[in-house]
């Protein structure tokens, strides 16, 4: 007997069913994991992006001209300890920012868009409260927006979305466990004759369990890889679609799914997990069946 020919049939109807089930569940688990990883990345990007900068809004004031208002505000901000740089946004910059919501056209020209100064902070603590007071006192119509409200709301949104994502992933994992266990047990029932015959000719329980678990490990891994490949195609395809010119309006503002190599490494764990679940189920079930035999 060649060592490569295991005790288990290489192909069987139950094996094909298990393959399909594992592939589908692996696909869903990869999508859910991709969703959770993307949300986690977005949450940190938003938080980091907002906490590293503040904005000064300059509303029109009768006490000071617009140009003087900008000059005074810039002077005050640039000299404030902890400020890295400050830049007054042009009208064109502001219009570009509003374009996704209001579209192109003449509408913006008629709107009283406030003058904005983008302030980039140095890493470390910055006395923003003091800067806000100094601006209010020194420059009529000036208001400092430290993004705290946005930051808190975005962080809360990201955290709750991430929690939903983890819940979905948990549910899919639980369903996967149940389905793979059920399918594995059904597959084992189909091969009960093998278990009995090999047991009767003197095989130890561990020998039989090893043969079965090896078979089901590869069966689970193969199914998992099929699901992973399908999920990767879906995720990468959706990212390309969002970036393409044919994408619907606004799609480019949606986040890219699974963007870093680390994320793909996490996804690679899914087939491994599928294989391990199938393997341990097979081992546990075979040992239980054998335990009932004399």
């Amino acid at each position: 007997m060649s060592r490569s020919s295991g005790l288990m049939p290489a192909e069987s109807a139950s094996g094909a069913t298990l393959h399909t089930i594992v592939a589908v569940m692996s696909f869903l688990a990869c999508l859910a994991l991709g969703f959770v990883l993307t949300l986690g990345r977005l949450a940190s990007e938003w938080t980091e992006g907002l906490s590293g900068s503040v904005t000064v809004q300059l509303l029109p004031s009768a006490q000071i001209s617009a140009d003087d208002q900008v000059k005074e505000a810039l002077r005050l901000v640039k000299n404030w300890p902890g400020v890295f740089s400050a830049r007054a946004l042009s009208r064109a910059d502001a219009e570009k920012m509003l374009e996704p919501w209001l579209g192109q056209g003449n509408v913006l020209q008629d709107l009283p868009v406030p003058q904005l100064i983008e302030v980039t902070l140095q890493p470390g603590p910055v006395e923003l409260e003091g800067l806000g007071r100094a601006l209010s006192d020194g420059v009529p119509g000036a208001h400092l927006d430290d993004h705290q409200r946005w930051n808190a709301e975005l962080a809360a949104f990201a955290t709750s979305s991430e929690a939903v994502g983890w819940s979905v992933l948990l549910l899919i994992t639980a369903a996967t466990l149940a389905i793979v266990i059920f399918a594995t047990q059904a597959g084992l029932q189909a091969h009960r004759e093998i278990v009995e015959v090999v047991h009767m000719i003197g095989a130890r329980d561990v020998f039989i369990a090893n043969e079965f678990q090896r078979h089901f490990l590869w069966l689970g891994v193969r199914g998992g890889i099929i699901g992973l490949v399908l999920a990767a195609v879906t995720l990468v395809g959706s990212s390309f679609l969002m970036d393409s010119r044919e994408a619907p309006v606004g799609a480019q503002y949606l986040p890219q799914f699974v963007s870093s190599p680390l994320h793909y490494t996490w996804l690679l764990l899914v087939p491994v997990m599928m294989g391990l679940i199938a393997m341990w189920t097979a081992r546990f079930t075979v040992l239980r069946v054998l335990g009932r035999m004399p």
């Binding site: 007997m1 020919s5 049939p9 090999v198 000719i201 003197g202």
Partner: peptide, 17 residues
């Protein structure tokens, strides 16, 4: 065992050992 060859079936006890 239907999926094994005649040789594999006969040598099973030796393999188990």
């Amino acid at each position: 065992l239907d999926h094994l060859t005649v040789f594999d079936n006969v040598s099973l006890p030796r393999r188990v050992m």
